[in-house]
Lab assay of single mutants.
Amino acid sequence: MKTQEELTEIVRDHFSDMGEIATLYVQVYESSLESLVGGVIFEDGRHYTFVYENEDLVYE
């Protein structure tokens, strides 16, 4: 089982391919040991929310 830090790094690596990240945040109250819920804001102003669970990243 991966730690929350490892899950965060996986998500950061994925989004870094889309541009320069200004902020990546995790909603700790919605996340667990198996899933990571949060959002990412890019330097150009784009903002996505995401759920990473079971090695699957869903964002909008």
Results as ranks from 00 to 15, higher is better:
L33V: 13
N54V: 05
F15R: 00
L33R: 12
D56G: 14
E60L: 15
G39A: 09
V11A: 05
F50V: 01
K2V: 07
S31W: 08
E5T: 09
E20T: 11
L36D: 00
E20C: 07
V11E: 00
K2S: 07
L57N: 02
L57T: 04
L57Q: 01
E55V: 06
H47Y: 12
D56M: 14
M18T: 03
Y59S: 05
Y29D: 07
V58E: 08
D17L: 14
G45M: 04
S32G: 10
V26G: 03
M1W: 15
Y25M: 04
V26Q: 03
V11G: 01
T23F: 07
I41F: 12
E43H: 14
G45N: 05
H47S: 11
S16C: 06
E9Y: 08
S35G: 05
M18N: 03
G45F: 03
V40R: 00
D17I: 08
Y48C: 03
Y52S: 02
I41W: 15
T8D: 04
K2D: 04
E6T: 08
E53C: 09
Q27E: 11
D17G: 14
S31D: 11
V40C: 05
T23P: 01
M1V: 08
A22M: 12
D17A: 14
E43D: 12
V58K: 14
N54S: 15
S32K: 11
Y25L: 03
Q27M: 12
D13A: 14
S32F: 09
L7Y: 04
L36P: 02
Y25S: 04
H47D: 03
V11M: 05
V11D: 01
T8L: 13
M1L: 11
V37A: 07
S16V: 11
V37M: 15
E5F: 07
T3I: 04
E6M: 10
M1G: 12
G39F: 06
Y59R: 03
R12S: 06
S16P: 02
D17S: 15
F42T: 02
A22S: 10
Y48Q: 02
Y59F: 10
N54F: 07
H14A: 13
T49W: 10
I21Y: 02
V51F: 10
G38E: 00
T8Y: 08
G39W: 05
G45H: 05
E9R: 13
G38I: 03
Y48V: 06
D17V: 13
L24Q: 02
T23M: 08
E5S: 07
E20W: 08
T49G: 04
R12F: 13
E30A: 08
E5G: 07
E43L: 11
Y25Q: 04
G38L: 02
E9A: 14
T23N: 11
E9P: 02
Y52P: 00
F50I: 01
E34D: 09
S32E: 09
I21H: 02
Y48H: 03
N54D: 12
F50C: 01
E60W: 10
I10R: 11
L7N: 03
I21C: 03
Y25I: 06
E60Y: 15
D13I: 12
M1P: 13
S31I: 08
G19F: 03
S35R: 07
Y25V: 05
D13W: 13
F42Q: 00
I21G: 03
F15K: 01
I10A: 12
E55W: 10
F42C: 02
S16F: 06
D44M: 01
L7R: 03
L24A: 02
V58H: 13
L33T: 13
G39E: 05
E30I: 11
L24M: 11
I10T: 08
E30D: 14
T49H: 10
E53P: 01
L33Q: 10
H47K: 15
V11Q: 00
Y29C: 07
E6Q: 08
V28T: 12
V37W: 10
N54A: 08
L36V: 07
V51Y: 09
Q27T: 14
G39Y: 07
S32T: 12
F50D: 00
D17N: 13
G39C: 06
Y52M: 07
L24Y: 04
L7V: 07
R12Q: 06
V37Q: 08
A22F: 08
F50P: 00
L33Y: 07
F15Y: 03
K2M: 09
D56E: 09
D17K: 14
E53G: 11
E5V: 08
D44S: 05
S31C: 09
D17P: 10
H14L: 10
E53H: 09
V28M: 15
Y59A: 06
T3E: 05
T3A: 04
S31K: 08
L57P: 01
E43G: 15
I41A: 04
E9W: 15
G45D: 04
V26S: 04
M1S: 13
T3W: 05
A22N: 09
T8N: 05
E20A: 12
V51K: 15
T3R: 07
E53Q: 08
Y25A: 03
E6P: 02
R12K: 15
V51H: 13
T49C: 06
N54P: 05
V51L: 11
M1R: 04
F15V: 03
V40S: 00
E43A: 15
L33K: 14
V28S: 15
S35I: 09
L33P: 13
Y48K: 02
V11R: 00
V51N: 07
V51T: 14
V28A: 10
E53L: 15
G45Q: 05
T23S: 12
T3N: 13
S31M: 08
E43T: 11
A22W: 13
V28H: 10
E43C: 10
E5P: 04
D56T: 13
E60K: 15
L24K: 00
M1K: 15
H14Q: 10
E5L: 09
V11T: 03
G39V: 09
S31E: 12
S31R: 04
E34P: 12
Y25K: 03
I10C: 05
Q27C: 08
E20S: 14
E6H: 09
D44N: 06
M1E: 11
D13G: 13
V26W: 06
I21F: 03
E9S: 13
E43Y: 12
I10N: 06
T3P: 05
V40W: 00
M18F: 14
G19C: 03
E5H: 09
Y25N: 04
L24T: 03
V37F: 10
F15G: 00
R46G: 05
H14R: 12
T23L: 13
Q27K: 15
L33G: 11
Q27P: 03
Q27W: 06
E9K: 12
E20I: 14
G45L: 04
M18V: 06
R12V: 07
N54L: 07
F50R: 00
E5A: 14
V11L: 07
F15A: 03
G38M: 01
Y29E: 07
E20H: 12
G19E: 01
G39H: 06
V37P: 01
A22Y: 08
L33H: 13
Y52I: 06
S35L: 06
A22G: 09
L33A: 14
G19K: 01
A22D: 09
T23V: 09
E30K: 04
F42N: 00
Y29W: 11
S16Q: 09
E53M: 14
M18S: 04
N54M: 09
S32V: 09
E55P: 07
I41D: 03
Y52H: 02
Y59K: 05
N54T: 05
Y48W: 07
M18H: 09
K2A: 07
G39N: 07
S16K: 15
E55D: 12
K2I: 06
Y48P: 00
E43M: 13
Q4T: 05
D17H: 13
D44F: 01
V58R: 15
F15H: 00
F42D: 00
L57H: 02
F50Q: 00
S16Y: 06
E55G: 10
Y52D: 00
Y48E: 01
V37S: 13
V51P: 00
V37K: 13
L7E: 01
R46E: 05
K2W: 07
R12G: 04
E9I: 08
Y59H: 07
L33I: 08
Y29A: 06
H47E: 15
V58F: 08
G38K: 00
D13T: 13
R46Q: 08
K2E: 04
S32I: 10
L57E: 01
Y52G: 00
L36E: 00
K2P: 15
K2C: 06
H14K: 11
I41Q: 05
Q4G: 05
S16R: 14
V26K: 02
G38D: 00
S31T: 10
Q27F: 09
E34I: 07
K2N: 05
L57M: 08
L33M: 14
